[in-house]
Amino acid sequence: MQDHLSQTFSALADPTRRAMLARLSLGEANVSDLAEPFLGEMSLPAVTKHLQVLEKAGLITKTRKAQWRSCKINGDGLKEAADWMEHYRVFWEESFDRLDTYLKTVTAPPKKGDENV
């Protein structure tokens, strides 16, 4: 059994699912609209499986009103992944800042009077 964060990253690992999320970031869409760009490459059942993975990971929600099945992005589903990445972004920014400071000290031109002739 995968933890929620692993499930999220696994869902995001596929370019088809990322494309579906990109489309949903523009607004709610029905399953047929989401499937349209991929129908030459894959079947409707395959598209539906991708949507199920996104839904199980909490990245989208699906509703059903009669024959209309709409999907919308769930921003809360991305929050845990974004928070996890933020921790490492801060770490790397601080590391690069320390490296930048160090490099400035070792590459700085010698100060007047420090020159050995």
Rank of each mutant, 00 (worst) to 15 (best):
H4D: 09
T8W: 07
F9G: 09
A11F: 05
L12K: 10
A13M: 03
A13R: 14
P15C: 04
P15T: 13
R17I: 06
R17P: 02
R18W: 07
A19T: 14
M20C: 04
M20S: 00
L21P: 07
A22N: 05
G27E: 09
A29P: 07
N30H: 08
V31H: 01
S32N: 06
D33T: 15
A35D: 01
E41F: 01
E41W: 02
M42E: 09
M42I: 12
S43D: 06
S43F: 01
A46F: 01
V47T: 11
T48K: 09
H50Q: 15
H50T: 07
V53Q: 14
L54G: 01
E55N: 04
K56G: 07
K56Q: 15
A57E: 12
G58I: 13
G58S: 05
I60D: 02
I60W: 00
I60K: 01
R64N: 15
K65T: 10
A66R: 14
Q67M: 03
W68S: 08
W68E: 07
W68L: 15
W68H: 10
R69G: 02
S70N: 10
S70C: 06
K79S: 13
K79E: 08
K79H: 04
E80D: 01
A82C: 02
A82N: 08
D83Q: 08
D83S: 10
W84Q: 07
M85W: 09
V90P: 06
W92A: 06
E93A: 03
E93S: 01
E94R: 12
E94D: 08
E94W: 03
S95K: 12
S95A: 13
F96N: 05
L99I: 13
L99F: 11
D100C: 03
T101Y: 06
L103W: 05
L103G: 02
K104Y: 02
K104M: 04
T105G: 03
V106T: 09
T107K: 08
T107H: 04
P109Q: 06
P110N: 04
P110K: 08
K111Y: 06
D114I: 05
D114T: 15
N116V: 15
N116I: 15
